[in-house]
Write a protein that binds this DNA or RNA. Structure first.
Lengths: 158, 158
DNA sequence: GGTCATAGCTTGAAGCTTCAAGTGTCAGCC
DNA sequence: GGCTGACACTTGAAGCTTCAAGCTATGACC
């Protein structure tokens, strides 16, 4: 497993500079979602995936979105969203209803209960985001972070 | 839910600059592990968590580490690691054996089969890492990435 | 108008992670 | 020596995510 064990096609390993960035990045993408999940679960009993559904719907006109668009906006698979919304519907936070003009489409709407929950838990969540991400960064670093995140996002969206 | 609905303690929302960084970052921490997982699962039948165990053990003297240290190095909970190593032991990639001097400790060792698997799948995995992370970044950005990841890591480690 | 591929969403099973609780071991203390 | 508390790890159940397969509806093509 050294750089000299060259097969076809040649295996290009990470150089020292890349490795020095990769290992911390790996920890971040591991620990950051974990931290968000834990804070939300402790104070609200839901994971971050559910929070994103609530928050995304709350920002829409009529607090409504089709399942497909909701999946795209929250970067989750249709299946995962379907399960999640089913669970949230059972708890009364979201309602589903078919589209009258295209019967393949289902609309998901944030209920008043769902909005109430979101309003209760949002401040604590935002505080956690500030604590783990933004409190330790300068304005210039925040700008770099935005630019880097967008650069990494490009190949991820295929 | 506006910035004017100030409760005690005052809710500080994210400003526009922070939001412009936060939304892409959120997608990255969501999609990046997903991409790594999918590539590995497609070509090797294992998830990224397993890969990290194999890779971490392979870099140790005797290819051995105690469960606790392995958990710390891979940033996973003891429970998660316990389940994962149990599954990998069943497939013959890792062996467990108690420490002779301190019987609370279990050592995990990468077997020859485990090392063989790692050597087969590492090139493809590294290629994927390059593709989604490093190919789109300049050297200067890689350096910024390292610095940012370390800054965010500090509050995450509590 | 019938056929076919595709879009949009759901389902169930399998796998993984988390949480709470449990086991056994060690070290400090009286 | 016996208690107490902490450490290292494991276990089982519950919840979440993923994958493959399925459903119905739509649009395009002939």
């Amino acid at each position: 497993m050294t750089a000299e064990d060259v097969a076809t096609p040649a295996t290009r390993w990470l150089d020292a500079q890349q490795m020095a960035a990769w290992l911390p990045l790996l920890r971040v993408v591991q620990l950051l979602p974990q931290a968000l999940d834990r804070q939300l679960r402790r104070e609200a009993g839901i994971g971050h995936a559910y929070y994103q559904v609530l928050a995304t719907l709350s920002a829409q006109p009529e607090r409504t979105l089709s399942m497909g668009e909701l999946a795209r906006m929250t970067a989750t698979s249709p299946s995962r969203l379907s399960h999640a919304v089913a669970a949230m519907e059972e708890r009364g936070w979201v309602a589903r209803r078919p589209c009258p003009t295209n019967r393949r489409i289902q609309y998901a709407t944030l209920t008043d209960e769902g909005l109430g929950l979101l309003e209760r838990i949002a401040p604590g969540h935002v505080a956690e985001v500030r604590r783990v991400v933004f409190d330790g960064l300068t304005d210039e670093q925040v700008e770099q972070l935005r630019s880097l995140a967008l650069a990494i996002l490009a190949p991820l969206d295929d």
